[in-house]
Design a protein around this nucleic acid. Structure first.
Lengths: 208, 208
DNA sequence: CGGCCGGTCACCCGAACGGGGGAGCGCGCC
DNA sequence: GGCGCGCTCCCCCGTTCGGGTGACCGGCCG
C-alpha cells in the first residue's frame, strides 16, 4: 500500500509540480490537495493521508497556524513544511507547531522523496540549509510577542511615540522594549534590527 | 507545429511543475530546461525555443541580467518572467530588460497558458496584480543608482557616517541623498524608506 | 552657449534615537 | 512565600537624524 499524500499549497504551478513529482514514485499516491490551510484541514478529515505537505505562506490562517490546528485535532498527523524562505525563526516555529519535516522549495526531488519517506516512517527531516540556519542562532533568545509586535511596527517605519500611542503605552516603554530587542538580535539601531529580523524570518515576510 | 518552450528555473519542484503543466497542453512542447541564467542562454543557443520562461532569482547572474544578456544576443527572443515577488520595480526592470511577459508564481494554469500564447504571437502580457502595482506607482520617479546603493546600505542598518566612509564621501552628502530618497519614496524616515523599497522590490530581495 | 541633472558639500536646529541607570507590578512556578 | 520574567515607566545625556536652505561642479542635451 502506497504512502498517501495530501498537498496544501496555494501556488498552482508548484502544487502541480509536487503532484507530478510524487506521483511518479511507485509507492506514493497523492490523494488530495487544497489551496489554503482551512480547506487543507477539511481535506485531512476526509482523507486521513499519511503525510501532509504544507506551504507556510498561504491566504487565510497561513501555514503555521494550519500546522498547529491540524496537529491539535490530529496529534498523529505527519506534516512536512515546504516553503520558499530560509531563516531560523520560521523553521523553529514550524517545528514547534508540530511539523516533522521542513524543506525549501529549492529542494531536489531526491531530497523531497527521502524526506517524505523518513517522516512517514515516524522520523524527522530538516533540509541542510535550514538546520544550518538554526544551528547558527542556537543560543539566541527568542523575542517575546510584545517585542515582535513592536518590531513589526518599527519595520513599517513608525516612530516610538506613534507606536506608544497605538499600543496605549508610553514611548519610554517602547524604548526599553527596543533596547531588549537590540540586545537579543545583536543590532545597534532599529533599521539594522529590522534587517536581521527579516533575514531570520521573524517578521510576517514580504511577498507570497 | 507546437510552441517550443525553454524553462529556466532553479527550483526543481517548480521546474517540473511548469513542465508538467505545459506538456499537458496539446500545442506546447517543453524542449529544454536550465537552472541558471548562464546555462539558460547556452540552452537557448542550441534550441532556439519560441518562448523562454525565466525565474528572476537564480544563482549566478540572476534572471534580470539573464534576460538582458539573452535579448542582447537574440533580440527576437520572447521571454516570460515568472517570479515569486510582486512590486513594481522588479517588473519595470524586467520589462525594460526586454521581457514580454511577467507572471507571479501564484498564477493559475489558465493564465500561464494564455500568457505564453500571447507572447508567442508577438504580444505582451502582465498579470493583473503586477500591472496594478505598476499603475500605482506610475508617476513616481525612479531612484538613481547612487541612491539605490545608499538605500541598500541603509537597509543593512548602517549609519550615515559609516556609509560616507565606505563610499568616500561626506556624511552630509549621504544625508542629502537620503532626503531625495525620502521624497521619491514618500517616506519620513530611513526605516520606512527601507520598508517601502522592499515592498516595491527595489532592493536585492531577501530569500531565494 | 545655457540649462538641467546628478552628485558633492556645508551649516543650523529641533526632534528622535540609543545607552546608561533605576524602579515598580502582576503572574506563574518552584 | 519568594523568585524570575515580562511589561511598564522614568530621568539623563550625548549622538544621530531629518528638514530647511544654499552652493559648486561636471556632463549631457538642446
Amino acid at each position: 500500500m502506497p504512502i498517501r499524500i495530501l498537498i496544501v499549497d496555494d501556488h498552482p504551478v508548484l502544487h502541480e509540480g509536487l503532484a507530478a513529482m510524487l506521483e511518479s514514485e511507485a509507492d506514493f499516491a497523492v490523494v488530495g490537495g487544497a489551496a489554503d490551510a482551512e480547506s487543507g484541514i477539511d481535506a485531512f478529515r476526509k482523507l486521513r493521508p499519511d503525510v501532509t505537505l504544507m506551504d507556510l505562506k498561504m491566504p487565510g490562517m497561513g501555514g503555521l497556524k494550519g500546522v498547529r490546528a491540524l496537529r491539535e485535532e490530529f496529534p498523529g498527523a505527519k506534516v512536512v513544511v515546504l516553503t520558499t524562505f530560509r531563516g531560523d525563526a520560521n523553521a523553529r516555529e514550524a517545528i514547534g507547531a508540530g511539523a516533522a519535516g521542513y524543506l525549501l522549495k529549492t529542494t531536489l526531488r531526491s531530497e523531497l522523496v527521502a524526506c517524505i519517506r523518513k517522516v512517514h516512517a515516524g522520523g524527522r527531516y530538516l533540509c541542510a540549509d535550514v538546520s544550518a540556519d538554526i544551528a547558527t542562532y542556537l543560543g539566541s533568545e527568542p523575542l517575546t510577542e510584545r517585542e515582535l509586535l513592536i518590531l513589526a511596527m518599527i519595520a513599517e517605519g513608525l516612530e516610538n511615540k506613534r507606536i506608544g500611542t497605538k499600543l496605549d503605552i508610553s514611548s519610554e516603554t517602547v524604548k526599553s522594549h527596543l533596547t531588549r530587542i537590540f540586545e537579543k538580535l545583536g543590532a545597534h539601531n532599529r533599521t539594522q534590527a529590522v534587517h536581521i529580523a527579516l533575514r531570520r524570518g521573524m517578521l510576517g515576510d514580504f511577498a507570497d
